[in-house]
């Protein structure tokens, strides 16, 4: 199994422990999704997961999650940079608040965001004037998903940026590189693995999110229904297999997407290492 020999200890025990823990906590429970779905006939399965309403929900869920993760990708990088490299008043408070979207129960986040963006809210009232509706539209879904995924990119980049040696930047600068060149050629490549990790995690988390979205999306069939909501409606009809079928499809698609991101990252790391 092991490809290259390393003198570092602990491969065997670490592998054993990791696999055992993953099996107990993740694989056995997740196997239930497969088992439950297996009780369906193929046709029912296919009909369930390709129902037009379900298809519309995949589109919204994946697109809004991607947009949310992208916004976090850009601003998360910026935030991590600003927090690690600069000093400004209120910095520590902002740093502390960044974890908030995790600590806040998702329903509370949803309610607070809806309060802000609905027609009579602080933001909603001005946005409405310029013709932008956020609450109860797909845009609202993006806002909610941006909020709940916000800590990921910042928090994955931050430790790497903190530990990044400045010597390379100094070397690059003394060799005549401009600041932008130093950033794009020296700093950013070093951050790419964690940046991609953060993006992937924010994206993944957004795909599954339910609590905050149902408040702000309006849940209109075909328009603002996310996939997790459809899973919930299946359960409401006591249709456990229908729910697990949709969940299974979501799981497989997200697994493939995450795998691609991880492979990309691995490939990038090797490329960097060989330079």
């Amino acid at each position: 199994m092991r490809k290259t020999q390393s003198i570092l200890p602990g491969f065997g025990p670490a592998l054993g422990y990791t696999l055992t823990y993953i099996s107990l906590v993740l694989l056995i429970p997740l196997a239930m999704v497969f088992l439950k779905t297996l009780t369906m006939s193929w046709e029912t399965f296919w009909r369930t997961v390709t129902d037009p309403r379900v298809l519309a929900s995949y589109r919204l869920s994946f697109l809004a999650s991607f947009l949310g993760a992208s916004i976090n990708g850009i601003f998360g990088l910026l935030l991590a940079w600003v927090l690690v490299r600069y000093r400004f008043p209120g910095q520590r408070i902002i740093d502390a608040l960044l974890d908030l979207p995790f600590a806040m129960p998702t329903a509370v986040a949803g309610i607070a965001l809806t309060t802000l963006y609905s027609t009579n809210g602080w933001f909603g009232r001005y946005l409405e004037n310029i013709g932008i509706k956020v609450a109860y539209t797909p845009l609202g879904v993006v806002v909610a998903l941006t909020f709940i995924g916000l800590p990921f990119v910042v928090r994955t980049i931050q430790p790497v940026l903190q530990d990044l040696d400045k010597e390379y930047e100094e070397a690059a600068a003394s060799l005549g590189a401009s600041r932008w060149q130093t950033f794009s050629r020296v700093i950013f490549p070093a951050l790419v693995p964690s940046w991609l990790t953060g993006f992937a995690l924010a994206f993944a988390r957004a795909l599954g999110e339910y609590g905050s979205v149902v408040f702000i999306s309006g849940n209109m069939p075909m328009r603002t229904e996310i996939t997790p909501l459809l899973i919930r409606t299946k359960l409401e009809q006591f249709d456990y297999t229908g729910a697990t079928a949709i969940a299974l499809v979501m799981m497989i698609i997200s697994f493939i997407l995450l795998l691609i991101i991880n492979l990309l990252q691995n490939w990038n790391r090797r490329r960097m290492a060989s330079h």
């Binding site: 309060t115 009579n120 408040f215 309006g218």
Partner: peptide, 20 residues
């Protein structure tokens, strides 16, 4: 119907708190 909340109290809040 512009908004379909997931539960009865959610709707009440949409009507009362959001003014929709």
């Amino acid at each position: 119907v512009p908004v379909l909340d997931s539960g009865a109290r959610g709707s009440t809040n949409t009507f009362v708190q959001r003014g929709i």
